[in-house]
Computed example of a mutant assay.
Amino acid sequence: MLKKSQTWASLGAVIALGALLAGCSVKQEAPAPAAAATAAPAAASADVPSLEGKTIGIAAKDVVRDFGRLTYQSVQDRVTELGGTVIATQADAKDDKHVANVENLISQKVDAIVVILGDSTTLAPALEKADAAGIPLFTIDHASPHSVNNIGSDNWNIGSTVARTLAEDLRGTGSVLVFNGFYDVVPCQIRYDEFRLVLKNYPDIKIIEPELQDIYEGTIEDAKRKTADAISREGAENINAVWSCWDLPAIGAAQAIDAAGIKTIKTYGVDAEPGALDLIANPDSSYALTVAQQPSLFGKTSAENVARYLGGQQDSVPLSTYLDAVVVDKANVAERRKELGLE
């Protein structure tokens, strides 16, 4: 069996293939979205071993957004259903606290750790410590060379889909206001890189400089102010779209655009936060599109991969698990909300 360092090096080549990997072994098949995805078995099964006698540490960066909160809760729920004991921590969106929580779980000698989100640079030393301590590490939306398995959406597909939709909506010409404050967060990095890659084929679409820096606390109000300032500085007629790798900055941007009565700027994000869905459902809002991930399925799948790994089924746990994401726009928002239980 390859060491994780060797496997990670191989993954670098795999990643370069991007969307061509739909049938590759690094993609673990998972249930379809909607009702089928939320109906978890009540306990262990032939496919998913018991976690009885095992203690699983969970370290979430925050539970402010629906994505973090639902993922955090679903990992705990599934570990408990499988008979395991949970030690759960969340860091209130503070990187130093997130690192401390992981280190505390290591000191408690848990049987496995699930890490939800986080800055790749800041967290790396703590994750290396977990690996050195022999504690299997599982991550959610945080690819790491020290992780046994990372759960995420296909962010290459998400990034290119949002970018292509934006470019086609602009009919290949225009100027885009971009929020890019979290490039070290792997999903945002991938989505941004895909955005830039797609725009190479749309040379008449320009990114407005300087790019805006979104923040993690007070995100919506901060983005609302920065968007209003950009509109004042550039002129509404010189901005055609707003791009963000997640919904909260896009919500603030849409609020600023809508409050100004501007009808010529469209806003694009990712995550299907309730506030984003409300704006997309409003025909008068500039919010055009988001992509719904499946946070409860993320957590459930991660917990089951922990159980398989600790239950002697290591070969059945892939390095990366990509779950389906769902595009939500003004034409389908009501239908998608119902399908995904987001009403």
Rank of each mutant, 00 (worst) to 15 (best):
K3A: 10
K3H: 12
K4P: 06
I15Y: 03
A16Q: 11
G18L: 00
G18D: 05
G18E: 00
L20Q: 14
S25K: 08
A32V: 03
P33T: 14
A34S: 15
A35F: 04
T38V: 12
A40D: 14
P41S: 15
A42L: 03
T55G: 05
D62W: 06
V64A: 11
V64D: 06
L70I: 08
Q73W: 09
S74D: 07
V75Y: 02
E81H: 05
L82Q: 00
T85K: 00
K94E: 09
D96Y: 10
H98G: 13
H98V: 12
N101G: 12
E103F: 07
L105Y: 12
L105E: 13
S107C: 06
K109A: 14
D111R: 01
A112Y: 09
I113C: 01
L117V: 11
P125H: 10
L127N: 01
E128Q: 12
D131P: 08
P136F: 03
T139V: 11
H142Q: 06
V148Q: 01
N149Q: 14
I151F: 04
I151Q: 03
S153M: 14
G159M: 08
S160E: 03
V162A: 12
V162H: 11
T165W: 14
R171T: 15
G172H: 04
T173F: 10
V178M: 09
F179D: 06
N180W: 07
V185H: 03
V186A: 02
D193Y: 08
D193V: 10
K200E: 15
D204G: 09
I208W: 13
D214Q: 06
I215K: 10
E217V: 13
G218I: 07
E221S: 08
D222C: 00
D222A: 00
A228W: 00
I231C: 02
E234F: 13
N240A: 05
A241T: 02
P249S: 15
I251D: 01
G252M: 09
Q255T: 15
I257S: 02
D258P: 04
T264G: 01
T267D: 09
A276D: 05
D278K: 08
D278C: 05
L279P: 03
Y287E: 03
A292I: 10
S296N: 11
E304H: 07
V306E: 10
Q313W: 08
P318I: 12
E335C: 04
R337I: 10
R337F: 05
L342R: 04
E343T: 09
